[in-house]
């Protein structure tokens, strides 16, 4: 009983700022700085309307942009990482083990080292100011960590399955697409959900690569409220902040098991 009381209090204290932000998104600006309560006096959606209209560009635009970038990132990671994982677990070719070792090696390289030359490269390709620098790398399997996760899973799928398929004259592509991928839905789900959340929350990438407000993601859009200067519209900002958290929360609710397991076994955020 004592443990429950302590845990309830602790989780309430921890979640209090988030709940307070939710409550404040229904308040007007004056009340935000005077009310500590978690229950707003009235459910006023005015701040949502103001925030959605935005300063220059509507917030709906940012939502579309973020959704497009995140979904493309998911597709890219699922395809490219599974192709690489399939090659190193199921195919035989010269240099296979070396390739796998190099994949593991890239997990150790922090992005700061590749950041500046990548930026210069994208600048020369005329990609700065487009979403390409945020999306194309995902199709080139740069998140070695996810390859590793898939390799672990593929190794658990019995080899007899694809050996039988080879006997029946299946090509490697058919085996990859018709046998391995359908059997790998759990790991594809985990990688997809983590990729979506990471891409959705990414601030640094959009910050340096997106230059036109029309292309901004929700994270850059939120920051726009702060830059407006001393007269920040806190209620509208909180309202939009709450909205940007909704997709992540929904994914958590639906994929809680695989997310928790992903963290427990691999240390992902």
């Amino acid at each position: 009983m004592f443990a429950h009381a302590a845990l309830c209090t602790a989780s309430l204290v921890m979640l209090y700022p988030l709940l307070w932000m939710l409550a404040s998104s229904f308040r007007d600006n004056a009340d935000i700085f005077t009310s500590l309560s978690l229950i707003p006096a009235k459910f006023d959606l005015a701040a949502y309307a103001r925030g959605w209209r935005g300063l220059h560009t509507g917030f709906g635009r940012f939502f579309i942009n973020s959704t497009v970038i995140s979904l493309l990132a998911v597709i890219g990671n699922l395809l490219s990482c599974s192709l690489a994982a399939f090659a190193v677990t199921r195919l035989k070719f010269r240099g296979r083990d070396l390739c796998f070792a190099m994949m593991l090696g890239t997990m150790m390289i922090p992005y700061q080292v590749t950041l500046i030359p990548q930026y210069i490269l994208f600048l020369h390709l005329d990609w700065v100011g487009t979403i390409l620098p945020l999306v194309v790398p995902k199709f080139l399997a740069v998140d070695a960590f996810f390859i590793f996760l898939m390799v672990q899973f593929f190794r658990g799928i019995p080899k007899e399955l694809d050996e039988a398929a080879v006997m029946d004259g299946c090509s490697a592509w058919r085996i990859y697409w018709n046998i391995m991928l359908p059997l790998s839905l759990p790991v594809l789900g985990t990688v997809g959900v983590f990729t979506f959340i990471f891409a959705w929350d990414d601030f640094f990438g959009p910050l340096i690569y997106l230059t036109d407000v029309e292309q901004f993601t929700v994270q850059l859009g939120l920051r726009g409220f702060l830059d407006a200067g001393g007269t920040s519209d806190w209620a509208a900002m909180f309202a939009m902040a709450v909205l940007t958290l909704v997709p992540v929360l929904l994914l958590f609710v639906f994929f809680q098991r695989s997310l928790i397991q992903g963290i427990a076994t691999t240390g992902l955020k």
């Binding site: 989780s11 921890m14 979640l15 932000m21 994270q219 902040a241 992540v248 929360l249």
Partner: peptide
């Protein structure tokens, strides 16, 4: 208890 970790990387939490 995991919620703050899940949401913490976002700009929403930083502005909060």
């Amino acid at each position: 208890f995991y919620l703050p970790s899940l949401l913490g990387a976002s700009v929403a939490v930083a502005v909060l």
